[in-house]
């Protein structure tokens, strides 16, 4: 190592040490909670203190989020139907390719996992996948809403609420059950009921995954020192990852179980009884 390089190395080490010491001394007073974390997390799960008035009903903010997401998606779909789809060409442009890719992906998922019956499944997976993905990304916007108590609340992801997750999990189970009944009748019901834990596992997996992201974000935001730079990673990247992963997991599981219960039964060939050949006359 030359003398010049040694000097540069020592200078860098000194700067890093000085920065760390300054950080330790200066941030001493920042690690104070802005509120009670327990209350914040309990509120994030139970929504007891932030009910919203919805046509006279007191609902969780996630219900409003769900309707807002549905509204956004329907307006977008209507605009696409009116202005984009009539201009579709056999050689697609980028946006057309994106739409076709989205439809084709869920249709392909349905066809690959359930080759015998997949017409309705493709449409369901498309809707559910879109709802989960867009709904999860929706919390990035952070739309403020007025609670019934008059406080302001940021609208969360629709499926970060236990009720939304239960709806999605149970509906997926009902769709699987209907596929089993339509394809195999009572045998399909039996096959579906065999997986009785499926609605609970699907619901709570979805709820847990989305809630964990919410809780981590709440925890991070509850400390002032962690509110710089870190939320970019926690808030944005984790949310995007959650959106993609949960969309894939729920649609894949639904398609997989739907295909399993709608598969026609394989009949075993009947064993033909061999006629007894009259035994030879015993010479004895």
């Amino acid at each position: 190592m030359t003398k010049k390089r040694t000097l540069v190395f020592l200078f860098i080490v000194a700067v890093i040490i000085a920065a760390l010491v300054a950080g330790i001394v200066l941030t001493d007073g920042l690690y104070e909670k802005t509120g009670n974390v327990n209350e914040t997390m309990q509120d994030a799960v139970l929504h007891e203190g932030d009910k919203i008035n919805f046509f006279g009903l007191r609902v969780n903010p996630a219900v409003i989020s769900g309707f807002v997401v549905t509204g956004i998606l329907l307006v977008f779909a209507a605009a696409v139907r009116l202005f984009v789809i009539p201009k579709f060409t056999y050689v697609p442009n980028k946006f057309q390719l994106l739409l076709e890719q989205a439809v084709g992906m869920f249709e392909g998922l349905a066809k690959n996992n359930s080759p015998h019956r997949n017409g309705f499944l493709g449409a369901y997976l498309f809707a559910a996948g879109t709802y989960i993905c867009v709904g999860t990304l929706f919390e990035l916007i952070g739309i403020p809403w007025m609670t019934a108590a008059g406080a302001s609340v940021t609208l969360p992801a629709p499926l970060a609420d236990i009720n939304g997750a239960i709806m999605m999990g149970c509906l997926s189970y009902i769709v699987i059950l209907s596929g089993g009944i339509l394809s195999n009748g009572l045998r399909g019901v039996g096959r579906t009921l065999k997986e009785f834990s499926l609605p609970i596992s699907m619901s709570f997996r979805l709820f847990g995954a989305l809630l964990s992201g919410l809780l981590v974000t709440e925890l991070v935001y509850s400390y002032l020192a962690l509110s710089f730079v870190l939320p970019v990673i926690v808030g944005v990247l984790f949310t995007i990852l959650h959106a993609l992963i949960q969309t894939y997991v729920l649609t894949m599981l639904t398609a997989l179980f739907y295909g399993e219960v709608s598969e026609p039964p394989v009949l075993k060939p009947k064993k033909q009884k061999q006629k007894k050949v009259p035994s030879e006359v015993n010479p004895k």
Partner: peptide
């Protein structure tokens, strides 16, 4: 805090979304 009424509201919301997306996009 599982609320059946809210589950049904979520379901209603999703049914509307499903019908709309199916007819307009899918």
């Amino acid at each position: 805090n599982i609320d059946w009424q809210q589950i049904l509201l979520h379901l209603l919301n999703f049914v509307i979304l499903f019908a709309g997306l199916y007819l307009l996009l899918y």
